[in-house]
Amino acid sequence: DVPLPAGWEMAKTSSGQRYFLNHIDQTTTWQDPR
């Protein structure tokens, strides 16, 4: 597995969808940043 870039975290919604948190610029995205 390729690790997420620095500052990123993967999370899941209550319905189980994956999303990605960027802690550096305080954004979220559905797109995997890798």
Rank of each mutant, 00 (worst) to 15 (best):
T13K: 00
A11N: 06
W8V: 02
G7L: 06
I24D: 02
P3L: 11
P33M: 04
Q31H: 14
Q31A: 12
D32T: 07
T13Y: 13
W30R: 00
A11T: 08
H23V: 01
R18Q: 09
T27K: 09
L4I: 08
R18W: 14
R34F: 01
P3K: 14
Y19H: 03
T13L: 08
N22Y: 04
Y19F: 05
T28M: 01
Q17R: 13
G16Y: 03
M10K: 12
A6T: 13
A6V: 11
D25I: 13
E9S: 13
R18A: 11
Q17N: 07
I24G: 11
S14T: 12
P5E: 01
Q31N: 14
A11R: 15
Q17W: 14
E9A: 13
T28L: 01
H23E: 02
G7V: 03
F20L: 02
S14W: 14
L21R: 09
D1I: 14
D32K: 10
G16C: 07
S14A: 14
V2I: 13
L4E: 03
P3A: 13
A11I: 05
L4T: 04
W30G: 00
Q17S: 11
L21V: 09
Q26N: 00
D32N: 08
D1V: 15
F20I: 03
G7W: 06
H23A: 00
K12I: 09
L21K: 15
Q31T: 12
Q31L: 08
V2M: 13
T28H: 05
E9R: 04
R34L: 03
L21H: 04
Q17A: 13
L21I: 13
D32S: 08
S15P: 05
Y19E: 00
G7P: 08
W8K: 05
R18S: 11
T13D: 01
G16F: 05
Q31R: 14
P33S: 02
G16T: 01
Y19L: 00
Q26K: 15
V2N: 15
F20D: 09
T29I: 02
T29Q: 14
T27G: 00
T13S: 08
H23R: 04
G7Y: 06
P33Q: 03
Q17K: 04
D25S: 14
R34S: 05
T27L: 11
R18I: 15
V2R: 15
D25V: 12
R34W: 01
S15N: 07
I24P: 10
F20W: 00
T29L: 05
T13V: 08
T27I: 09
N22P: 01
T29W: 08
G16L: 07
T27F: 13
Y19A: 04
H23L: 01
W8P: 04
G7E: 00
T28F: 00
P3H: 14
S14D: 08
D32G: 06
N22F: 01
E9V: 05
R18H: 12
D1Y: 13
Q26D: 01
R34Y: 03
L4Q: 05
A6N: 11
A11F: 00
G16H: 07
T29G: 08
L4G: 01
S14C: 06
A6F: 11
E9Y: 06
M10L: 10
R18L: 12
I24K: 14
I24R: 12
S14K: 15
S15A: 12
V2G: 15
D25T: 12
Q17G: 10
W30T: 01
P3S: 14
F20A: 06
M10R: 11
D1N: 13
R18Y: 11
T29S: 09
Q31Y: 12
L4H: 06
R18D: 10
Q26G: 04
L4A: 06
E9N: 08
I24T: 11
A11D: 06
E9I: 04
E9P: 01
S15H: 10
W8Y: 08
L21A: 06
Q31G: 11
P5V: 06
D25A: 15
H23Y: 01
L4P: 06
Q31M: 10
D32Y: 09
D25P: 04
G7C: 07
V2D: 15
I24C: 10
N22M: 00
P33H: 03
A6P: 12
L4K: 02
P33K: 02
Y19N: 03
W8C: 03
R34H: 04
D25Q: 15
Q17P: 04
P3R: 14
D25F: 14
K12H: 12
T29N: 10
V2C: 11
T27C: 10
T28K: 01
D25C: 15
A11S: 11
Y19D: 03
G7F: 10
M10F: 07
K12Q: 10
N22T: 03
P33W: 03
F20P: 00
G7R: 08
G7T: 02
A6I: 10
G16A: 06
L21W: 03
D1G: 14
L21F: 04
T13P: 03
S14I: 13
Q17M: 08
Q26T: 01
N22V: 04
L21P: 04
S15F: 12
H23C: 06
D25R: 15
A11H: 02
D32A: 10
A6D: 10
Q17H: 11
W8L: 04
Y19K: 03
Q17Y: 15
P33R: 06
E9D: 13
T29V: 03
D25E: 13
N22A: 00
A6R: 12
P33L: 02
K12R: 11
I24M: 11
V2E: 14
Q31K: 09
L4V: 08
D25Y: 12
V2P: 15
H23I: 05
T27A: 08
W8E: 05
W8R: 05
D32P: 08
L21Q: 06
D1R: 15
A11E: 04
K12N: 09
A6G: 10
D32F: 07
D32C: 04
D32Q: 09
N22R: 05
P3E: 12
